[in-house]
């Protein structure tokens, strides 16, 4: 564990708490892509099956349990509790175009051709693109509530912090995880446009609005 990874994970944790806070206080999931959230559940379930057979640490275990349970809870909030506030007509990104290629990539690129390893690879590839329906929705509507942009910023920061973590681990442990690194770089790159608007507008006190 190093500080980059710790702060990355905390930022990931914070992003989920921000999202829960947004849904609970506004009593609405307006502006949140159900597809992205459903993809995250898929990612966590596929990746954290090792919860049952591989012990890393109490920290690792608790985080995995939190990520799986909170992401499922968010789906419940969106589909059941605050269902009327979710508008599927603007959440139109075709998630199957993401899942299909990720399955294929995972079958080709994995550390061992076993069920858990292929699932792990699949989850890494899927996570890297899972935010696309959300970003697509943002692009479509052209604006977002400030709290939603904080959620995305925390999520993006988590990804960005994993990069110095890998550099650190390369020098301190000689460990490189090429699948995680390449997918992670792609994932972080997807946030570049968002961060540009976030830094130049939201953090200056303006509303998140994309130029028409």
């Amino acid at each position: 564990m190093n500080l980059f990874r710790l702060f990355g994970d905390l930022s990931h944790l914070a992003s989920i708490l921000i999202l829960l806070h947004k849904i609970q206080t506004t009593r609405s999931c307006r502006g949140i892509s159900f597809k992205t959230q459903a993809l995250y559940v898929t990612v966590f379930v596929a990746r954290y099956l090792d919860l049952f057979y591989d012990w890393v640490s109490l920290y690792n275990f608790s985080m995995k349990v939190f990520f799986i349970s909170s992401s499922i809870y968010i789906l419940y909030l969106m589909k059941v509790r605050f269902r009327p506030t979710h508008d599927p007509s603007i959440d139109t990104f075709r998630a199957e175009y993401l899942v299909g290629p990720c399955v294929v990539l995972a079958l080709i690129f994995n550390y061992k051709f076993t069920f858990p390893e292929v699932l792990w690879s699949f989850s890494i590839f899927l996570e890297s693109v899972a935010i696309l329906p959300q970003l697509f929705m943002l692009q479509r509507t052209g604006e977002a509530e400030t709290i939603t942009t904080h959620y995305l910023a925390a999520l993006g920061a988590y990804r960005a912090l994993y990069i110095p973590n890998w550099i650190y681990r390369y020098f301190s442990e000689g460990v490189v995880d090429p699948i995680a690194v390449i997918a992670g770089l792609v994932q972080t790159a997807l946030y570049v446009d968002f961060f540009y608007v976030y830094f130049t507008k939201v953090l200056q006190g303006q509303k998140f609005e994309l130029p028409a």
Binding site: E117, Y162, D177
Partner: peptide, 10 residues
């Protein structure tokens, strides 16, 4: 590469 079957990152 990481030890197979053991992924310590979240």
């Amino acid at each position: 590469t990481p030890r197979e079957g053991h992924h310590d990152e979240l």
